[in-house]
C-alpha cells in the first residue's frame, strides 16, 4: 500500500503535529520508502504465532495502592512554560 498526502496530513492531525505544506512531498516520499521496507513482514505467515506482549517471563508487579509522595506542587509546576500560582495555564478552551 502507499500513503498519499491526504493520509499523511490526517495522521499528522491525529499526532497533533502541524506539517509544513512545503515539506509534505518529501515526507510522503520518506514514509513510503520506510513502509515499503516494513512491509517485508508480509512475506511471513504468522497465523499460528502468539504475539509477544512482554519480554520478561513474569507478570508486571503491582504496588500497594497507597500514597507514597505528595506536597510537591512547586516541583511539578517548576518547568511549566506558563503557570499561575497553583495551575498550569493553557489557551482558553471554553468560551
Amino acid at each position: 500500500m502507499s500513503l498519499d498526502k491526504e493520509k499523511i496530513k490526517h495522521v499528522a492531525k491525529l499526532a497533533r503535529i502541524s506539517v509544513d505544506e512545503a515539506k509534505v512531498d518529501s515526507l510522503t516520499k520518506d514514509l513510503n520508502s520506510i513502509f515499503k521496507f516494513i512491509e517485508q513482514l508480509n512475506e511471513l505467515n504468522t497465523d499460528k504465532v502468539e504475539p509477544l506482549t512482554s519480554i520478561l517471563n513474569q507478570s508486571l508487579r503491582s504496588r500497594k495502592d497507597e500514597i507514597s509522595d505528595g506536597k510537591i506542587r512547586e516541583k511539578i509546576l517548576k518547568n511549566s512554560p506558563k503557570k499561575n500560582e497553583e495551575f498550569f495555564v493553557v489557551p482558553k478552551v471554553v468560551e
Binding site: 499526532a15 497533533r16 503535529i17 502541524s18 506539517v19 509544513d20 511539578i76 518547568n79 511549566s80 512554560p81 506558563k82 498550569f88 493553557v90 489557551p91 482558553k92 478552551v93
Partner: peptide, 24 residues
C-alpha cells in the same frame, strides 16, 4: 504538549493549534 514542561509555541489561536505548533 507545551503545557507541563518544555518548549511552548507562541503561535496558534486555540489549545489544539498550540499543541500542533509546539510539537512541530
Amino acid at each position: 504538549d507545551g503545557v507541563r514542561y518544555g518548549y511552548r509555541s507562541q503561535k496558534g489561536k486555540d489549545l489544539i493549534e498550540m499543541y500542533e505548533n509546539t510539537r512541530s
